[in-house]
C-alpha cells in the first residue's frame, strides 16, 4: 500500500501544480458575531427550551434534590451506574466490566455530561468519570443524564474550544430519531428511546 500512498500524494501535487498555494486567512467572525448571546437573558432557559424541543425530558433540581429526582425518573428499573457517578439510584448495577450483551439486558443508565450546549440543546459526553465507556449511554433504553448548570456553554464554538479531541466524544441532541419513513419523525431507533436531563442548579 506504500505504492498507493506515494501515488496519491504525487497525484495531489500534480493536480495542484501551477496553482497559487499561498495561505489565505479563514474569516472567523462567526465566532465573534455580536448577536451571539442567548436570545433570552438566561443561558440555562435557552438550553432547557432547546433540549425540550427534541422531546427529551428536562428536570430542574437543586443538588439536594438529585437523588429524589433520579428515583422518580428511574422508578424500580435496574440502572447501570458508571464509576465515579456521585448520586444513589434505586436499583444500581455497577458498570465496570459489563459486556454489551449484559448492557442489553439492563433497562436504564445514569451518566453525567461534560458540557451542555445551549443554542443547540446538546449534551456532550467524553466518557470519563461518571460517564463510563461509550456503550453505557447507548445500549440501555433509558438514559438519565445529570448536568450541573455551570457546565452549560453558549454554542458550538464554545463547546469545541473547551473539549479535548483526544477523548472519545458523544454529542447527544435528544433521543435517537429517524425520519426515513416518509419523513415522519420517529423517536428511538437504536439509541436510548427515552432521554431525561437533570439540570442541577
Amino acid at each position: 500500500m506504500n505504492d498507493a500512498r506515494t501515488a496519491i500524494l504525487e497525484r495531489v501535487r500534480g493536480a495542484l501544480h501551477g496553482t497559487e498555494r499561498a495561505a489565505a486567512p479563514v474569516p472567523r467572525d462567526y465566532r465573534t458575531n455580536p448577536a451571539r448571546r442567548p436570545v433570552r437573558p438566561d443561558l440555562l432557559d435557552l438550553f432547557v427550551e432547546r433540549v425540550e424541543d427534541y422531546r427529551a425530558r428536562v428536570h430542574r433540581c437543586t443538588p439536594a434534590e438529585v437523588a429524589d429526582t433520579l428515583a422518580t425518573v428511574l422508578r424500580r428499573r435496574r440502572t447501570v451506574v458508571p464509576d465515579g457517578f456521585a448520586w444513589p439510584v434505586p436499583q444500581p448495577v455497577p458498570g465496570a466490566g459489563l459486556t454489551a450483551a449484559e448492557l442489553d439486558r439492563i433497562p436504564a443508565v445514569v451518566t453525567t455530561a461534560t458540557l451542555g450546549v445551549a443554542t443547540t440543546g446538546t449534551l456532550v459526553l467524553t466518557h470519563g468519570e461518571g460517564q463510563g465507556p461509550r456503550a453505557f449511554s447507548l445500549v440501555p433504553d433509558v438514559h438519565v443524564c445529570v448536568l450541573p448548570a455551570d457546565r452549560v456553554v453558549l454554542g458550538v464554538p464554545e463547546a469545541v474550544a473547551a473539549l479535548d479531541p483526544h477523548r472519545p466524544q458523544t454529542w447527544i441532541s435528544g433521543p435517537s430519531a429517524t425520519s426515513d419513513i416518509e419523513l415522519d419523525r420517529v423517536e428511538g431507533v437504536h439509541g436510548p428511546r427515552e432521554l431525561h436531563v437533570l439540570v442541577v442548579t
Binding site: V26, Y30, R31, R50, D53, Y54, V117, T119, T120, G121, T122, R134, G155, V156, P157, A159, V160, A161, P165, H166, R167, P168, Q169, T170, W171, I172, S173, G174, P175, S176, A177, S179, G191
Partner: peptide, 26 residues
C-alpha cells in the same frame, strides 16, 4: 475548524439545530 462545520452540516442537512448523535474518536 469543526466549530463551523458542526453548525453548517446539521442545519443544512436534516434541518435540525443539531443532529441527534455526533461521535468523535481519535
Amino acid at each position: 475548524d469543526l466549530d463551523a462545520f458542526l453548525q453548517l452540516l446539521p442545519r443544512s442537512s436534516t434541518g435540525e439545530r443539531m443532529n441527534p448523535y455526533t461521535s468523535t474518536w481519535t
